[in-house]
């Protein structure tokens, strides 16, 4: 997350200055001279951008100073500067650790499943909603699907725990319908990924569809009319007009999603996992949290986090360049 924000900020920063200085290249002095002139001429614009630049400097660049503890044996008593250097010790420990492969596997798998099922879900919902003609019904569906997004995560997880309990609602229904014995779903590592991904879809499907619905509204209606005249039915129009028109949006969303491939929000996993499900549920972010905040192994957890950010950055960059090559849509 941190890295992808940094990447975005770099892009924004580029726009901030590049917009004023027209011709790239040339000697640095020449560039600075032009920049100075430009700044004097359009000082109001430069004033306007200060808060944004300051925000990124303070919240996203300054903290990188602390990332050096990944290469040190950080002790709070000695401070960041005072702690002795440790080289790549913590990285080596991580690579050699019993948990290394499991963490990578869990983080990736949760994300792959999320991408596989969670990413198309809002698109499909948006397309379906778009086809509904009754305004009242459309509104009702939208409202109902948005609601879970506004419920606090901790409440959602509380609900899940109650419902998936061995005596909970889901077991009750299964028992009534098929006479199945109660299963404590949250205690069995086999179910964790399904629960995580399915509840994620339920939570975010409505909210996620907004951006696609917006993209659909901006499609030129004449395209549909022309298609109707050519005798196209709904399905044809959907496949040949709606989907291609929102494809750029989908690709941008996908690229941004790629940057999260090595990330799983720690909170939800933490609220749902327990020792029995670590095997499938323990991900990099929860591991970093346990190591850093509970066990106070700051340097080690910083090293794990840093490594993760680097991988994320590489993923964004490569998916961006792939997309650039094949579809001319890209973030930068």
């Amino acid at each position: 997350m941190a890295k992808s924000m940094v990447a975005k900020s770099a892009a924004l920063g580029g726009i901030g200055i590049g917009g004023g200085a027209p011709s790239p290249g040339g000697a640095l002095a020449g560039y600075l001279g032009r920049l100075g002139k430009n700044m004097r001429a359009y000082y109001q614009l430069y004033l306007l951008i200060i808060p944004v630049v300051a925000y990124y400097l303070v919240f996203h660049y300054w903290p990188m100073y602390g990332a050096q503890i990944a290469f040190k044996d950080f002790s709070p008593g000695e401070g960041i500067w005072g702690s002795p250097w440790a080289g790549l010790k913590h990285f080596r420990t991580y690579f050699g650790s019993y948990y290394f492969w499991r963490l990578i596997r869990n983080t990736l798998l949760l994300n792959v499943y999320n991408l596989l099922y969670g990413f198309p879900a809002p698109i499909i919902l948006a397309l379906l909603i778009n086809e509904v003609r009754s305004r009242g019904y459309k509104r009702a569906v939208q409202t109902i699907t948005y609601i879970p997004h506004f419920i606090s995560l901790i409440v959602i997880c509380g609900l899940l725990k109650d419902m998936l309990n061995a005596n909970g609602l889901i077991n009750y229904l299964l028992n009534a319908a098929f006479g199945r014995e109660g299963v404590a779903y949250l205690l069995d590592p086999r179910y964790f990924r399904t629960i995580y991904v399915a509840s994620g879809i339920w939570q975010q499907i409505g909210w996620g569809s907004i951006i696609y619905l917006a993209a659909i509204t901006s499609i030129d209606q004449e395209l549909y009319e022309a298609a109707s005249i050519d005798g196209a039915r709904r399905l044809r129009k959907l496949i040949h007009i709606t989907i291609p028109s929102i494809l750029p949006t989908i690709i941008i969303m996908l690229i941004m999603r790629m940057g999260q491939m090595m990330n799983v929000g720690a909170e939800k996993v933490m609220l749902l996992y327990n020792s029995a499900t670590y095997e499938t549920a323990d991900v990099i972010s929860t591991f970093v949290y346990r190591k850093g905040l509970l066990e106070m192994d700051y340097s080690y957890s910083a090293a794990v986090g840093l490594l993760n950010s680097i991988v994320n950055f590489a993923l964004v960059a490569s998916s961006n360049s792939i997309s650039k090559r094949f579809s001319e849509t890209s973030l930068w």
Binding site: A2, E267, V288, N308
Partner: peptide, 8 residues
């Protein structure tokens, strides 16, 4: 300052 030490 504290952000990088704690990803959570």
């Amino acid at each position: 300052c504290a952000a990088p030490a704690a990803t959570a």
